[in-house]
């Protein structure tokens, strides 16, 4: 169990690292494009397409598993905080079951779409032809691992009486405490 947990966390971090690289690449390429067309009158061909179909897609979908591990998704815990232990356990079971269903159907469909995109060699045409099918795979990876992570968390809810989402996480915590330290 602990080994699986570590493996999933490492994989999630790896995907988030890839998303971070997308962000850095987006920043650098857009700036380079702005400089190139202002100074050299020669923009970098395909910038808008690469930003949209690779960097954006990577930055949005790849961090999903880590976001789940860190309990960063947006939820309303007003009633949760008022509920009894049993009520809270039931809510968590329901929430994580729903989450597994949600990420699984998205992983399944986006996986099929990605395979179809390879088969037809999906491409967009700007000043240059940009193949875009590889970026399609960010979706099944992100959704798929998020589903597996949700399954792990569901197992923890079933097995560990006192465990709550995000409790061992001291990183995604309050931004103020960190910066004023």
């Amino acid at each position: 169990m602990i080994a699986i947990e570590h493996l999933l966390e490492r994989l999630s971090r790896l995907l988030t690292l890839a998303a971070s690289l997308c962000l850095v690449a987006m920043m650098i390429q857009v700036c380079a494009d702005v400089i190139a067309y202002n100074l050299l009158r020669a923009p970098i061909p395909g910038t808008a397409e690469i930003v949209a179909y690779y960097y954006m897609v990577g930055a949005c979908f790849l961090p999903l598993p880590l976001a789940e591990l860190r309990n960063s998704n947006i939820h309303v815990d007003l009633f949760y905080n008022m509920a009894s232990w049993l009520g809270r356990r039931s809510m968590l079971l329901l929430a994580y079951t729903a989450q597994i269903a949600f990420f699984s159907i998205l992983a399944y469909q986006s996986g099929i779409d990605a395979l179809e995109a390879i088969a037809k060699g999906e491409v967009v045409f700007g000043r240059i032809a940009v193949p875009i099918w590889p970026g399609r795979f960010f979706l099944p990876f992100g959704f798929g691992l998020a589903a597996v992570v949700s399954l792990l968390l569901l197992t923890k809810i079933c097995l560990q009486r006192d465990w709550e989402p995000g409790m061992e996480d001291n990183e995604g915590d309050s931004p103020i405490s960190k910066e004023t330290r």
């Binding site: 954006m56 469909q109 779409d113």
Partner: peptide
């Protein structure tokens, strides 16, 4: 319903104009 799952997630995100959001966050 499956068709909507094909139609929306990828094409919603893959938009140049939306790139301002992660960049301003950064």
């Amino acid at each position: 319903a499956w068709g909507i799952l094909t139609a929306i997630p990828h094409n919603f995100v893959a938009q140049w104009t939306l790139s301002a959001i992660p960049m301003f966050l950064l």
